[in-house]
Simulated scan of single mutants.
Amino acid sequence: MVDSLAITFLMISVMLAIGVPVAFLIFFHRRFTVSWKHVLVGAGIFIVFALILEKMLHAYVLDMNPVTMKWVKNPYFYALYGGLAAGVFEEVGRFIGFRYILQKSHDWEDGISYGIGHGGI
């Protein structure tokens, strides 16, 4: 049985994880009129690049390839691989999002709304 204190703090974590991005979105939408399109593009780019494509690379490197499986047993190589994979996939996704989907979005409000979607998802 799970301790009631653990359930309480899990519920608090869920409320913060949902509430903080929604609160930022409401605040910036009312104050600076940020675009919902940018929020959705930021969330979509994160889902596609970080959760789908990066996970496919992790499955190959960490589970399928016997050579790289030996390399990532070293914690330094594992940390280097994880940081590089996250950086490459998220930056390529961000580049594609702003270069091809949000071509005319160069204001700081566009970056804030994209970041709310990207980080909030």
Rank of each mutant, 00 (worst) to 15 (best):
K37G: 02
K37P: 00
H38S: 12
V39L: 11
V39S: 04
V39F: 08
L40A: 11
L40V: 04
L40E: 01
L40Y: 07
V41Y: 06
V41R: 03
V41W: 07
G42A: 12
G42Q: 06
G42N: 08
G42R: 05
G42F: 06
A43G: 09
A43H: 02
G44D: 09
G44H: 10
G44A: 14
G44K: 11
I45D: 00
I45T: 04
F46H: 02
F46G: 00
F46T: 02
F46P: 00
I47L: 15
I47E: 07
I47S: 06
I47N: 05
V48E: 03
F49H: 01
F49A: 01
A50H: 07
L51G: 05
I52F: 15
I52E: 08
L53R: 04
L53T: 02
L53F: 14
E54V: 02
K55L: 11
K55I: 02
K55D: 10
M56C: 10
M56W: 15
M56K: 13
M56P: 01
L57D: 04
H58N: 13
H58K: 13
H58C: 04
Y60R: 09
Y60C: 03
Y60W: 15
V61P: 00
V61K: 03
V61R: 03
V61M: 12
V61T: 04
L62C: 05
L62P: 00
L62D: 06
L62I: 02
L62S: 05
D63A: 11
D63V: 04
M64I: 07
M64F: 08
N65H: 07
N65S: 13
N65Q: 08
N65F: 03
P66Q: 13
T68P: 02
T68E: 04
T68V: 01
T68D: 08
T68F: 07
M69Q: 15
M69S: 12
M69G: 08
K70S: 13
K70C: 05
K70I: 04
W71E: 10
V72R: 00
V72A: 01
K73S: 09
K73T: 06
K73G: 06
N74M: 07
P75Y: 15
Y76R: 10
Y76M: 13
F77H: 12
Y78W: 14
Y78L: 14
Y78Q: 10
Y78A: 12
A79V: 07
A79Q: 08
A79Y: 10
A79H: 06
G83R: 12
L84G: 04
A85L: 15
A85W: 05
A85D: 10
A86M: 13
A86N: 08
A86Y: 13
A86W: 13
G87N: 12
G87W: 15
V88Q: 06
V88W: 08
V88A: 13
V88G: 02
V88K: 05
F89T: 01
F89L: 11
F89D: 00
